[in-house]
Computed example of a mutant assay.
Amino acid sequence: MKKSSKKIISIPGMSAKTALAIGSLTLLLTACGGGKADMNNNAEVKHTSSSTAESNETVFLPDDLPNFLLKGYYKEMHAHFSQPLKDEVSETELAETAKEFTKDIQTLNKASDMQLNGFDRRTWVSDTGNKGLIGMFDPDGTISLIQIQELTSSPETDSTLSKREYALPFEGDWFVFWGGENVLVNYHYEVEIQRYAYDFIQANENYSYKGDQLKNKSYYAFGKNILAPADGTIVSIVNDIKDNEPVGVMNPNQATGNNVVIDHGGEYSHLAHLQKGSITVKPGDKVKKGDIIGLTGNSGNTSEPHLHFQISDGVDLFNSRSIPVRWENGLNPIQGETITATE
């Protein structure tokens, strides 16, 4: 979800655009949107270019990207750019930007690794903690995007977890599309009202759908039980907003879609984008942890079926602060992980 003119956007997809941040370290591409690619994600992720060495080849794998930047292998890196990216960014521009970006950086440490719907997206954070790197790769290892970004943190709130422990609000295995404490792994992070929110989907063999990607029923998450994450009282519900179809057509005028808000004693869980007519509770109802409250949908400003979940310090999502979740069993969901709900 993302705040925009007092509205929430939750878009768990990726744009297929290519871009490189030239000059200032600003965000040129937010990795979200309705676009999907139908590519074979099982291809070997390896690419070679003519360089020097005994074999006259330099092998490049996606996880090599930070080292190529730090060691100044700009020519070799540029050789692994996709043609659209080569057309947009010259080797000289790459070198100038990379030198500025890597100044004062000793290491770039992996933050997330996500292969989904034909995309391979990986992120790294500098040892200084104030710079981030995103790389996106085609199935053959070709670099289709490089994005560099300044990072900010909120240490005073990052470490202040919710007073209560919360269970995962679903059953079985789910994939963390957005989750973590920087904008590389969680695009919610830049906005205080949703800084510690999550977007959860389901995936099988690195795809969130099977069949017609324009139909909600093709998505593994659609229609799955959503559960109360802890005991509480239902504060509000919305249950009459139609699910977006074809998938990818969004509803910004009713941005949260069908949703449930639960009071857990001064902390409030917000569960959004539920399926129309699926909500089984009403305001004033008492719920226990694990009670079914509705089904995953695709309602509101969302590009595919998923669950948006967060804990806030108020009922009104737009006038509250998001709170870092104290998950049961010490769970700490991060983008790209598959997490399993236990009974």
Score class of each variant (00 low, 15 high):
333 P>W: 07
68 F>C: 05
161 L>I: 00
203 A>I: 06
251 N>D: 04
271 L>P: 09
61 L>Q: 13
283 P>Q: 08
110 K>I: 04
252 P>K: 10
265 G>L: 06
134 I>V: 15
73 Y>H: 01
57 E>Q: 15
265 G>I: 07
85 L>H: 12
176 V>W: 10
119 F>P: 00
226 I>C: 11
135 G>H: 05
140 D>R: 05
180 G>V: 14
276 K>P: 06
174 W>H: 05
81 F>M: 02
324 P>I: 00
51 S>N: 07
158 D>R: 09
209 Y>S: 03
339 I>H: 09
159 S>M: 10
287 V>K: 03
292 I>N: 08
33 G>P: 07
194 Q>E: 02
163 K>C: 02
56 N>H: 02
165 E>L: 04
35 G>T: 08
91 E>Y: 12
236 S>Y: 07
229 P>K: 01
109 N>D: 00
314 G>I: 06
178 W>T: 09
84 P>E: 06
205 E>M: 10
218 S>K: 03
318 F>T: 15
183 V>P: 04
220 Y>G: 03
240 D>H: 11
215 K>Y: 09
215 K>G: 12
211 G>Y: 10
276 K>M: 07
154 S>K: 08
225 N>R: 00
137 F>A: 04
153 S>I: 14
177 F>C: 03
311 I>P: 06
98 A>M: 04
335 Q>G: 13
82 S>V: 09
269 S>Y: 07
54 E>Q: 05
225 N>T: 02
44 E>V: 04
191 V>T: 00
315 V>K: 01
224 K>I: 00
319 N>S: 09
155 P>F: 06
245 E>W: 12
300 G>Q: 13
41 N>R: 07
327 W>V: 00
326 R>P: 07
169 P>C: 10
122 R>W: 09
98 A>P: 06
183 V>T: 08
49 S>C: 14
72 G>N: 02
133 L>D: 14
175 F>P: 08
217 K>N: 13
4 S>Y: 14
225 N>A: 01
103 K>N: 00
88 E>L: 01
239 N>L: 03
191 V>E: 04
26 T>P: 03
289 K>V: 14
195 R>Y: 15
158 D>S: 12
